[in-house]
Design a protein around this nucleic acid. Structure first.
Lengths: 124, 124
DNA sequence: AGCTTGCATCGACAGACATCGATACAAGGG
DNA sequence: CCCTTGTATCGATGTCTGTCGATGCAAGCT
């Protein structure tokens, strides 16, 4: 159940912090956009939030599904997209499947969105 | 030309940092997802990167368009979405329109994705 | 083995989105 | 004034995506 994240993974072309500092090339932009796209849905944002904020670091799908007015297949679909984006990971234990955050990925996103000390603000 | 960002704006229901700390409610998730969705396209990520990394803080559309193999209306469309998400702002000066980053919005995103000192990592 | 419960996958469908060419609008120059 | 150049909007079109019910698969129980 362990897909590896395209963003958390250290990559040849992209090593570095901020999107706001240096223009990204097409490949870097495409990989980043995949992760942002995974976060571009209210259900998935809330899923990630529920998973990440869970004491103990994991949560069972059976505790996730009832938090939404959506069918179980739909929740499963959203979890799959989050997993493919490298934002979460899953593990089966017995009958249940547990999801947990992949903090490396959110860390990387946060770094990418952080501007280097006092980004030039069009200095008026 | 100044739409205001739903995320940079201080809001009644949401005041606080990390998505990773406390479960978001539906409204908070929906607003956040709008911004992430705006970043969920390779062209827009690269546009934002080109705009933000520009020395002087602004860039003319006429310098943006030739950086892509896309029609001018398509670029204009993507810029509009970034603007509506509160990620960039624009100003017309003479014939040209200049875009600049709205750093409050990216700052807020970065904060939201930052975990409070040592998020419980499923402590194995 | 059969039953039950938890979760994932499949196929279908409606709505959303990226893209284009054509066109409209804004501003400056002849 | 018209013409040109820069940018936004419009309408059409093909593709992608969120959602569902039905079904399949995994694991434990009896």
């Amino acid at each position: 159940m362990s897909n590896q994240s395209p963003v958390a993974r250290s990559r040849s072309s992209a090593c570095c912090p901020s999107l706001l500092e240096t223009p990204l090339d097409e490949d870097q932009s495409a990989e980043l956009a995949k992760v942002f796209k995974a976060l571009g849905d209210p259900v998935r944002v809330r899923l990630l939030s529920l998973i990440a904020s869970r004491a103990g670091g994991e949560i069972c799908v059976c505790d996730l599904t009832p938090a939404f007015d959506l069918s179980q297949p739909t929740i499963s679909h959203h979890l799959k997209l989050l997993r493919q984006a490298g934002l979460i990971d899953s593990e089966r234990r017995g009958t249940w499947v547990y999801y947990r955050l992949v903090p490396e990925t959110t860390d990387r996103l946060a770094a990418i969105l952080t501007r280097p000390a006092g980004l030039p603000l069009a200095t008026p």
